[in-house]
Design a protein around this nucleic acid. Sequence first.
DNA 1: TTTACTATATTCAACTTGCATATAGTAACT
DNA 2: AGTTACTATATGCAAGTTGAATATAGTAAA
Lengths: 122, 122
Amino acid sequence: MNGHCHGRAQSMERFLEISLLILLYDTKGYGYLLMEKLENFGFSSEQMNIGSLYRVLRKMESSSLVASSWEQGAQGPKRRVYEITDEGKRMLDIWIQHVRRRKETIEYLLETYETTIHDRMN
Amino acid sequence: MNGHCHGRAQSMERFLEISLLILLYDTKGYGYLLMEKLENFGFSSEQMNIGSLYRVLRKMESSSLVASSWEQGAQGPKRRVYEITDEGKRMLDIWIQHVRRRKETIEYLLETYETTIHDRMN
DNA sequence: TTTACTATATTCAACTTGCATATAGTAACT
DNA sequence: AGTTACTATATGCAAGTTGAATATAGTAAA
């Protein structure tokens, strides 16, 4: 039910979804691997929990942002491998615009903070 | 229980708390007024709900980030007026560092997105 | 006395999250 | 064959967060 105009604008989950869509834009990926790649996006394996990752991937599949299939890796159990869909690309495009606005907001906040503190120092 | 090392790193609520501390750094303020000022920080009065604002202000008082007192305005009912505490300033200082890191993460995400999309275009 | 506005606060249902746990295949060692 | 370790996916539950609606109440003008 979370289109681009409804629901919470930018929760951690939304940020996670966006990161995953970017990672999957290039190449397919499965949970455990994506987990590692997510570190670059600020989801360190300490604070990021694997259960949430699998949950959000299933949710993204149910809303057709990604599609999955089972693949046998070199060793270990089968992997559920995800790839991005056209709908996923379309949604990423929309969500990225929100991220840009969020970036501006953060910049405004930091500037305001620095101005406020600086004025206090003098 | 949310010190600077525990709990969710940057929910909307945390972002709201930081914005409020910055607003209160300069001058005292009360709920209804702060509501308007928050627009600059990306909390538009449409999407921002006043109930959440009052809730978070009370919570911030209970954790000693702000202190409140009742004041009679020019007209209308009394206002609960908040001011920042030393503890609030200390916490803001810590949280701002998190925001800076978050800004970097967002920049990384946007750069990665643009690179990914650009590569696809050629 | 009714309507509108300012102002604060609470309730409730729905959703989100972290943590723990369950399940299970592979692989190495004994 | 049994144990341990590792890879991999998934679910259950308690606690926390949120949005929307509602409650309360003072002021002020019609």
